[in-house]
Design a protein around this nucleic acid. Structure first.
Ligand SMILES: [Mn+2]
Ligand SMILES: [Mn+2]
Ligand SMILES: [Mn+2]
Ligand SMILES: [Mn+2]
Lengths: 222, 222
DNA sequence: AAATATTTTTAGGTTAACCTAATATTATTA
DNA sequence: TAATAATATTAGGTTAACCTAAAAATATTT
């Protein structure tokens, strides 16, 4: 009887309406979630089925005890994720809000506890907070991911490990079929002038690669 | 033309199949995602529609250039979220894997960059890592959330702020209607022996609350 | 109390994402 | 090569989550 992401959002909206106005009405929930009233009625009937709300048509929507508990828990998740994005990572409020509404549905107790602790940790240790801020600023976008070298950048005698094969599907399939799979070790045997072709050895076999092909092979020197 | 969470997962699965085996087949994608082959065919046709894969029936599934880019990006998100859960927060691999597959679809560039930076920060600063581990261990579960006091725990003259009203829907509605809304300040005027009733003043009005009711009002001393 | 406006409910429809079961295809093996 | 096994595809169906438009029920004004 686990709720879907959507129903968790409805429950949370009802919870907020009850707390803010004392009761939840179809219209207000609809507005809060940016859906039509008819969608709310449908969702509320599902929640009623599941035992999370009381609802008789014409009346207000009311959370049951279990409903309240679930809503409370979801809301606490929301709070901690938002706090993490906002205070620790410095994500823009606008974005943070939206991301939070997605992430809050993908949490378990362990994650919740650890994330809470992390927020507290940063709050209590402003020196760490400061240090991280400086550290993060020094990372300009793009510096972190996809920083692998490609095969064509190395020379005779280098021993390399294949990390990834890029390029279009057909080329990639061909290269992988030759044995250039992630994890494979290769040794450069010879590089022709201008880098084309590059001869390599892997698993005892020789392979001659065009420069264009070598560029598709992301490697790490070992 | 934004992909749904599900289609992103299909794309990622195809990406992995291509990288591991050189090509992606319906059956293997189905196995990887724990769905039936017919579901894969349907999803692949949608991806083809959107220009992310090439597929002619009977042939392999192949990522197009855009498809590869999106898959790569999704995969990088997956990596960084997993790394965060696993290395920074210490979430169990099993759980971390599952949570990651949910969270990876709720990220933007800013979040990705900041989270990457955070992982690096912890990796590079093992002292901080250590310090956080100790800090987190000292937080036993439940210590963090829901630690509010309730109205019945205070005495004459205390000035309090209402944080939240709990209890069943009807009671809560009644209390909120009396003006006991989150944020409201109240002053305790008198507490009868055994704590029942509790008389309070808010917005210049007097209110007499049963002990049972007072217990539902979570407050903070100010 | 009528008339008008707001809100809720119902009826009926679409789409994504699943499924089962039946029918092609394509590979393997005898 | 024929029989068998494995894969892929189609056909047809379900469910959640949305929608529009119309009808019914409530509130608010004249
Ligand atoms: Mn949400
Ligand atoms: Mn996923
Ligand atoms: Mn999600
Ligand atoms: Mn219907």
């Amino acid at each position: 009887m686990a709720l879907t992401e959507t129903l968790e959002d409805y429950l949370q909206a009802i919870f907020h309406e009850e707390n803010e106005k004392g009761m939840a009405r179809v219209k207000d929930v609809a507005k809060k979630l940016a859906v039509r009233a008819s969608s709310v009625v449908e969702a509320v009937n599902r929640l009623k089925e599941a035992g999370y709300v009381l609802y008789e048509k014409g009346d207000f929507i009311r959370l049951t005890e279990p409903g309240q508990e679930v809503a409370q828990r979801t809301f606490e998740r929301n709070l901690v994720v938002y706090r993490f994005l906002d205070q620790v990572l410095g994500v823009e409020p606008e974005h943070a809000r939206k991301l939070t509404c997605g992430i809050e549905h993908h949490m378990d107790r362990q994650f919740f506890d650890a994330l809470s602790a992390l927020c507290f940790f940063f709050e209590r240790n402003s020196d760490v907070q400061e240090k991280f801020r400086r550290f993060a600023d020094s990372y300009e976008k793009g510096m972190i991911c996809d920083m692998y070298a490609t095969l064509d950048q190395f020379g005779k005698g280098d021993t390399l490990k294949v990390i990834k094969v890029s390029g279009d599907a057909f080329l990639r399939q061909r290269l992988i079929a030759m044995g250039l799979t992630p994890g494979q070790e290769i040794v450069i045997e010879r590089v022709a002038p201008l880098g084309d072709p590059v001869d390599v050895v892997l698993r005892g076999y020789h392979l001659s690669l065009r420069k264009e092909e070598a560029k598709c092979i992301k490697v790490e020197k070992i």
